[in-house]
Amino acid sequence: MSTPAEIQFAPRRLSESHVKLVDRIGEPLFRALAAAAGVASVGILVWIAESVFNQAGLAISHFGLAFLGHNTWNPVTNDFGAASFIYGTVVSSLIALLIATPTAIAIAIYLTELAPRRVRRPIAILVELLAAIPSVILGLWGIIVLGPFLGNHLEPFLSGVLGWIPLFAGTPSPYGMLNAALILTIMALPIVTSVTREVFQTTPGDLKEGAYALGATRWEMLRMTVLPVARPGIVGAVILGLGRALGEAIAVTQVIGNATQISSSLFAPAGTLAAQIASEYQSANPGLGTSSLMYLAAILLVISLLANAVAWRIVRRFNIMGRR
């Protein structure tokens, strides 16, 4: 044992005669409670996985792995498959991160290198507050404010200029993949930004000074020192953002149109794993339908556990996992 435990010995012997009853019971009880809480937090994770897979059992044994590549969702004929939702989850999250990553890196550069010292914290807090907006409100905003703007202005413009690319072909619509991807961008941005910013702050100052001493401009300094040092951390930040985007159910189900289809057009309605689960909340009843819903949840759980575990391993090295 370490020194504090030994220090403990002498006074205890002195007062052995009247070691209080509260201490004799309290010490082991308190330790047991604390340990139980610790075990519970690991246990709940295992329990979630076990329970979700257990309840997906019926669908897993009925459809097997073909479920992953099968594109239907028909409660009437009891025919279910996850292909379109997996596609929608991957595509909407990838687009979101494609936009969020460069933006987040730029904001992190601004916050660590450019911003006047006095506005750094306020702006960092404002960006993090984006993550505090409840997703249901972001979804409401997506339906009523962002949707009509996309359907009436941005999408007609995009299809006019870039319509020869299948992504931007198709009928403009307020609901669909693009709306969902933009909402997810807003949700992923603060996470990617704050982790990237903290990673940037770990760059040793003398590296930066060395670059300046060589006559580098600020951008050249960033490219020579900060960005290479931070690269793995940025990757971790992006995967964390990806984990956030993959798992968002509410805002996505509000704006994506909840369709069981795989369309090359970003304007078309689509669906994601999480959004599909959310949209079925009223019709969930025992049987193959609910079990298939649990199968979707199981796929989603596996994907997001993987993403978070990988991100955790990478980001941990920077020793900044403070607040999340």
Binding site: G38, S41, V42, I44, L45, W47, I48, S51, V52, N54, Q55, L240, G243, R244, L246, G247, E248, A249, I250, A274, I277, A278, A284, L293, M294, A297, L300, L301, S304, L305, A307, N308, A309, W312, M321, R324
Partner: peptide, 22 residues
């Protein structure tokens, strides 16, 4: 435990919902 907590934090909340639902 720290790892488990971070991973638990990354569990999509809709999955937590269906877990308790079940």
């Amino acid at each position: 435990i720290r790892f488990a907590l971070d991973i638990l934090n990354g569990v999509p909340t809709i999955v937590t919902g269906v877990f308790i639902f079940g």
